[in-house]
């Protein structure tokens, strides 16, 4: 149950206009075998790795809302809703943490994409 003050503090919302999104989605994991030779002793290894690490990590306190206010460093149970200002889709990758989120644009274009972000504090 939220107290009156906590109720006021939750469900804050910020509009962050014209945010530049350069991140690209990870291409997923890939598995492979390799043969390593150390001093003529050969070993076969299985490995699994993620392709691309160009997902864009954004801390909330890096953002400035439409009124010119810096967002707080910590937001309780945040929800980030991006709206692309072009025909290139943008999306949040994974789940937002209280301090940051990951965002990416669809593959296919070299240029960053401009989007408006609606950041909402849902509260616990």
């Amino acid at each position: 149950m939220l107290s009156g003050l906590e109720k006021l503090k939750t469900r804050r919302a910020w509009l962050v206009p014209d945010f530049s999104i350069w991140g690209l989605p990870a291409l997923g994991e890939t598995e492979f075998l390799l043969v390593e030779n150390v001093d003529n002793n050969r070993g076969v290894f299985f490995n699994i790795v993620n392709l691309t690490d160009t997902v864009q990590e954004v801390a909330f306190n890096q953002l400035t809302d439409h009124r010119g206010n810096q967002l707080p460093a910590e937001i309780s149970a945040p929800l980030v809703i991006p709206r692309s200002k072009s025909d290139v889709p943008v999306f949040v990758v994974g789940t937002e943490s209280d301090s940051q989120f990951k965002i990416a644009r669809a593959a296919g274009d070299e240029k960053p994409v401009t989007a408006d972000l609606l950041v909402m504090e849902m509260g616990n």
Binding site: V35, R42, G43, V44, F45, F46
Partner: peptide, 15 residues
């Protein structure tokens, strides 16, 4: 995650 799954005395191991 990397796992050493076997040694090999083959020259190529994987062909």
């Amino acid at each position: 995650m990397q796992k050493n799954i076997t040694a090999t005395s083959s020259i190529t191991g994987l062909g």
